[in-house]
Deep mutational scan, measured.
Amino acid sequence: IRVTEDENDEPIEIPSEDDGTVLLSTVTAQFPGACGLRYRNPVSQCMRGVRLVEGILHAPDAGWGNLVYVVN
């Protein structure tokens, strides 16, 4: 998935696990201090948080898609 520190920055590609999840530790390896991800909902244009359970980030209902995710 494509992740950036700010919406206007160049994104970095972060690998997902075989089950489609992303480990928070993978994100923090590239973005120290990150505690989660958010993205701009293409329909509402509002920022939406990615579900985080026990250090594992779960894809939105429509999958990770071609969105750019921003670190929290």
Results as ranks from 00 to 15, higher is better:
Val50Thr: 04
Tyr39Cys: 02
Asp61Val: 09
Ser44Leu: 07
Ala62Tyr: 15
Gly36His: 03
Val53Cys: 12
Gly20Leu: 05
Gly36Cys: 02
Gly49Ala: 14
Glu17Asn: 12
Cys46Glu: 15
Val27Ile: 08
Pro42Val: 06
Gly36Ile: 02
Pro60Asn: 01
Asp18Phe: 07
Glu10Cys: 13
Cys46Ser: 10
Ser16Met: 13
Thr21Leu: 02
Pro32Ile: 07
Val68Met: 10
Ser16Val: 12
Gln45Glu: 11
Leu67Ser: 11
Gly20Met: 01
Gly63Tyr: 02
Asn72Ala: 10
Glu13Tyr: 13
Glu10His: 09
Tyr39His: 04
Pro32Tyr: 03
Cys35Val: 14
Leu52Arg: 06
Val53Tyr: 09
Pro11Met: 03
Ser44Thr: 13
Ser25Asp: 10
Ser16Thr: 12
Thr26Ala: 13
Gly20Gln: 03
Ala34Asp: 01
Val70Glu: 07
Gln30Met: 14
Ile56Asn: 05
Leu37Met: 05
Gln45Phe: 08
Ile56Met: 07
Ser16Cys: 11
Ala29His: 08
Pro11Ala: 11
Val27Gln: 00
Arg51Glu: 13
Ser25Leu: 05
Phe31Lys: 01
Glu13Asp: 15
Pro11Tyr: 09
Phe31Thr: 02
Asn8Val: 07
Val3Ala: 02
Asp19Val: 04
Trp64Phe: 02
Tyr69Ala: 02
Ile1Glu: 02
Leu52Val: 06
Ile1Asp: 04
Gly20Asp: 05
Ala34Tyr: 00
Pro32Arg: 07
Val3Met: 05
Ser25Thr: 10
Pro42Leu: 06
Tyr69Trp: 02
Val53Pro: 00
Val27Cys: 02
Ala34Cys: 11
Asp6Pro: 03
Ile14Ser: 05
Arg40Val: 08
Val71Gln: 01
Tyr39Thr: 05
Leu52Met: 14
Thr21His: 08
Asp61Gly: 12
Arg51Lys: 13
Arg38Ala: 12
Leu52Thr: 07
Ile14Asn: 11
Leu37Ser: 01
Pro60Thr: 01
Ala59Pro: 14
Phe31Cys: 05
Ala34Lys: 01
Gly33Asp: 13
Asn8Glu: 10
Gly63Met: 00
Ala29Val: 10
Asp9Trp: 11
Val22Pro: 01
Leu37Phe: 00
Glu10Tyr: 09
Phe31Gln: 01
Asn8Gly: 13
Leu23Gly: 06
Ser16Leu: 14
Thr4His: 08
Asp18Thr: 15
Pro42Met: 02
Val71Ile: 07
Thr4Gly: 05
Pro42Glu: 11
His58Cys: 06
Ala29Thr: 11
Glu13Trp: 15
Asp9Ala: 14
Thr4Val: 13
Leu52Phe: 08
Thr21Ser: 09
Arg48Trp: 09
Ser16Glu: 08
Val22Met: 05
Gly65Thr: 03
Leu23Asn: 07
Gly49Asp: 15
Tyr39Asp: 01
Phe31Pro: 01
Asp6Gly: 10
Gly55Ser: 04
Pro32Val: 05
Thr26Cys: 07
Ala29Arg: 15
Phe31Ala: 03
His58Met: 13
Thr26Glu: 11
Glu5Val: 08
Ser44Gly: 11
Tyr39Asn: 01
Asn72Leu: 11
Glu54Asn: 10
Gly33Gln: 10
Ser44Pro: 04
Pro60Glu: 03
Gly36Ser: 06
Glu17Asp: 03
Phe31Arg: 02
Val50Phe: 01
Ile56Gly: 04
Leu23Asp: 03
Gly36Trp: 01
Glu13Leu: 13
Val50Tyr: 02
Cys35Thr: 14
Thr26Ile: 06
Val27Gly: 00
Pro15Ser: 10
Asn72His: 15
Asp6Glu: 13
Met47Pro: 08
Ile12Arg: 12
Ser44Gln: 07
Arg48Pro: 02
Val3Arg: 00
Arg40Ala: 07
Glu17Thr: 07
Phe31Gly: 01
Val3Pro: 00
Tyr39Glu: 00
Gly65Leu: 04
Glu17Phe: 01
Val70Gln: 10
Ile1Asn: 07
Gly65Cys: 07
Asp18Pro: 13
Leu57Trp: 01
Val3Lys: 05
Asn72Lys: 10
Pro32Trp: 04
Gly49Lys: 14
Met47Arg: 05
Met47His: 04
Gly63Pro: 00
Leu37Pro: 03
Leu57Ala: 01
Val68Gly: 03
Ala62Phe: 12
Glu13Phe: 10
Val43His: 15
Met47Ile: 10
Tyr39Ile: 02
Val27Trp: 00
Asp18Lys: 13
Ile56Pro: 01
Cys35Gly: 11
Tyr69Asp: 02
Leu37Ala: 00
Leu57Ser: 03
Ser44Cys: 07
Ile56Arg: 15
Gly63Val: 02
Pro15Ala: 13
Leu24Cys: 03
Val50Asn: 02
Val71Phe: 06
Val3Thr: 00
Arg51Thr: 15
Phe31Ser: 03
Pro15Val: 09
Gln45Pro: 06
Cys35Lys: 11
Val68Pro: 06
Asn72Gly: 05
Gln45Leu: 12
Leu67Ile: 15
